[in-house]
């Protein structure tokens, strides 16, 4: 009877703990686990302000250029067959980012087979860099089932990026996020610059290119706050080189005007606009090509 009582109380105690922690996304403040989560979170501020820098996915970045009449050119991409040739965590994480962008590019142009090939390359390099490959398995099944559907393939590509970010954020691997994102952003810039080809003042894509300054700056800030090793410093240097070129663009500012209509809709007008001239364009194109070559070489 005593044995039964002991087991009963052990069960009751455990169920109480488990039930309490699982209740409607609420955790106890006293729980040391919860304290650890809160302490390790970026963007959490109590005494001093720290900011979580968010990044649009490579698919979202390329989507903007896609509407600027870009043509599909597979020669711009890094072959997924190269995935096994990258040795060392720096090369693997940077090229994981490169492949994520190449997957997004293939998805945008509804190239189903290529999208699946790149997703498989992403999954393979993820495993090498300590990211759970299971987060991509359902996406692989969906990408095969949704062959030729632009919205579905694009969503799958964006989901692959956000699933990976979530996995890394949960594990507190901010430096890996910075490395992967740097590879992805450099590849996005490379594809955009090569697709534009030569400079033409009235090319609408130049404005979109200038807008890349914002996500690059956010990524640079994210990378700076996550710096831990020499590999991260190399990446920061890449980003600083690119950011410096963006900072040299001609700026025109107008006062920011915020208005709110009776239905509550807020309009924000004015602010800073950047203008890219031919010299800026050539410098940026050459610098990005040089950095990208260093990343994809093996």
């Amino acid at each position: 009877m005593n044995k039964f009582k002991t087991v009963f109380w052990l069960c009751a105690f455990t169920v109480l703990i488990a039930g309490n922690s699982g209740c409607k996304n609420v955790q106890t403040n006293n729980d040391s686990q919860a304290e650890n989560i809160a302490d390790s979170m970026d963007g959490h501020t109590s005494d001093q302000e720290s900011v979580l820098f968010l990044l649009p996915s490579p698919g979202e970045i390329l989507l903007r250029f896609y509407s600027a009449d870009f043509q599909y050119n597979p020669e711009l991409l890094n072959s997924p067959l190269n995935k096994d040739k990258y040795i060392g965590s720096k090369a693997q994480t940077l090229n994981l980012g490169v492949y994520i962008t190449d997957m997004a590019y293939s998805a945008l142009f509804e190239r189903s087979a290529e999208t699946v090939n790149y997703l498989e390359a992403v999954q393979a390099l993820s495993t090498e860099t300590g990211i759970s490959s299971t987060i991509f398995e359902s996406l692989l099944v969906r990408s095969k089932a949704n062959a030729g559907k632009l919205d579905s393939l694009a969503n799958i590509s964006n989901e692959a990026f956000s699933n990976m970010l979530e996995f890394l954020e949960t594990g507190g691997k901010e430096n890996t996020i910075a490395q992967v994102s740097a590879g992805a952003y450099i590849e996005s810039l490379f594809i955009a610059l090569q697709s534009i080809g030569s400079y033409s003042e009235d090319n609408e894509a130049l404005e979109l290119l200038s807008d890349m300054r914002f996500p690059v700056d956010n990524l640079l800030e994210k990378a700076k706050s996550a710096t831990l090793n020499e590999a991260d410093k190399t990446i920061i240097n890449y980003l600083i080189e690119i950011s410096t070129i963006f900072n040299d663009l001609e700026k025109s500012s107008s006062k920011t005007v915020v208005t709110q209509n009776p239905s509550g809709e807020v309009s924000i007008q004015g602010g800073e606009e950047l203008k890219m001239n031919e010299a800026n364009f050539i410098i940026l194109k050459n610098k990005v090509a040089e950095i990208r070559k260093g990343i994809v070489s093996y």
């Binding site: 959490h44 501020t45 302000e49 900011v51 996915s57």
Partner: peptide, 18 residues
């Protein structure tokens, strides 16, 4: 938009996103 986010929060905390 892929910048949509969630996080853990307690009363008195402030989360700041860029």
């Amino acid at each position: 938009d892929g910048q949509s986010r969630s996080n853990v929060i307690g009363v008195g905390d402030k989360l700041v996103y860029s």
